Simulated scan of single mutants.
Amino acid sequence: MARVSQEHLDARRRQILDGAARCFARNGFHGTSMQDVLKEVGLSAGAVYRYFPGKDDIIAAITEETFGVIRGAFEEAARMTPPPTPDALLARVLGGVLAGQVHGLERRTFAALVVQLWSETLRDRRLAALLDDGYAAMRGVWAHLVDAYRSAGILASDVPSDHVARTMIATAQGFIVQEALFGDVRPDVLEGGLRGLMAMKTQKTG
């Protein structure tokens, strides 16, 4: 019997994850059964269970991959020299991630899937651990960027790196939530809004 190539195995796994992601995006995790996933991907139960023992394992794989895509995009941008300022970086990365049709999903559908994944981490310890790891990595990326901003002389030295990291992650999360809920959240609007806030001058008192 001929051995199945790794390329074939990877393609089959991709087929399952993308099909399951479409189901979850349409009906939610708890409104989607394994039968729904099997129908979507057009495979037998045995073929799917060869890769994933159950629905929770598929959800975990999608969670890890999705968070990895977002984190990887920020890490790639952070390696640019000089690094883009936060307004340009966030617009560039989030616009690219949402336009990239991860799992074959349109941008608003993908954003909705991400929000569902975040919600699911509140009840699933395994997913929560994946989110915690991703969040810690993102904070590390932004801390590195803050150091680069300081070296370039465009950020005050008395601003804690972690404060900036948490704020920019929250901005990215808010952008994704807005896209999921309302759609048509353009990266240029995010960039322009952040640039305006960054240019504000504090009023002197006394």
Rank of each mutant, 00 (worst) to 15 (best):
F24C: 06
D57A: 15
F74V: 07
R14F: 02
A21G: 07
H163Q: 14
H163G: 10
I169S: 02
G96P: 00
G183H: 08
H30C: 10
R123E: 09
R3L: 13
I154N: 02
G104L: 00
Q6W: 03
R107I: 01
Q15V: 08
K204L: 14
L98R: 00
D124G: 09
A180W: 00
D188R: 13
G174V: 04
T66C: 12
P86S: 07
D162M: 07
D188H: 10
L122N: 14
D162K: 05
L122D: 14
Q116C: 11
L127D: 04
M80I: 13
A143V: 11
M1F: 14
R123P: 04
V102N: 14
I62P: 06
H103K: 03
G72F: 07
R150C: 04
W142G: 02
V189W: 13
P86W: 01
H103Y: 10
D184M: 07
R195E: 09
L145D: 03
F52T: 06
D132V: 12
G46W: 10
G174I: 10
G192K: 13
D36V: 11
G28P: 04
G31Q: 06
P187Q: 05
G193I: 09
I16Y: 01
L113K: 09
D158N: 14
S44P: 06
V97Y: 03
T66P: 02
V164S: 08
A128Y: 07
R123D: 13
R92H: 07
Q116T: 14
A2M: 07
V69K: 01
V185Q: 09
R150S: 06
G104T: 02
F67N: 12
S33C: 02
E64R: 12
L117V: 13
L190R: 01
M200Y: 09
P83G: 05
V159T: 04
G19M: 07
L113P: 04
P160E: 07
E7S: 11
A129Q: 14
D36K: 02
L127I: 09
A78D: 12
D162W: 01
E40S: 12
T85M: 11
G54K: 11
D57M: 02
G31V: 05
F74H: 09
E7D: 12
G104F: 05
T121S: 15
R123F: 14
M1A: 15
A88Y: 09
S157R: 12
I59G: 03
L194Y: 08
E7H: 00
F29E: 03
D188Y: 11
G104E: 01
V177P: 06
Q101Y: 00
I16M: 00
T66S: 14
G42C: 01
R186Q: 13
K201Q: 13
R125Q: 15
A156S: 14
R22L: 12
P160R: 06
D132I: 01
A61K: 02
V4I: 15
G54L: 02
K55M: 05
D57T: 10
G96H: 00
T66D: 11
V115W: 03
G96M: 06
I59M: 01
H103S: 01
A47F: 08
M198H: 15
L89T: 04
R12G: 11
T81L: 13
A73N: 05
A137E: 12
A88C: 08
A199E: 10
E64D: 15
V69C: 06
T63V: 01
T171C: 07
A112W: 00
A156E: 08
I16D: 00
G134Q: 06
N27S: 14
L90T: 06
A112H: 08
F110D: 04
R3D: 06
A47Q: 04
A60G: 13
A180P: 02
A61E: 13
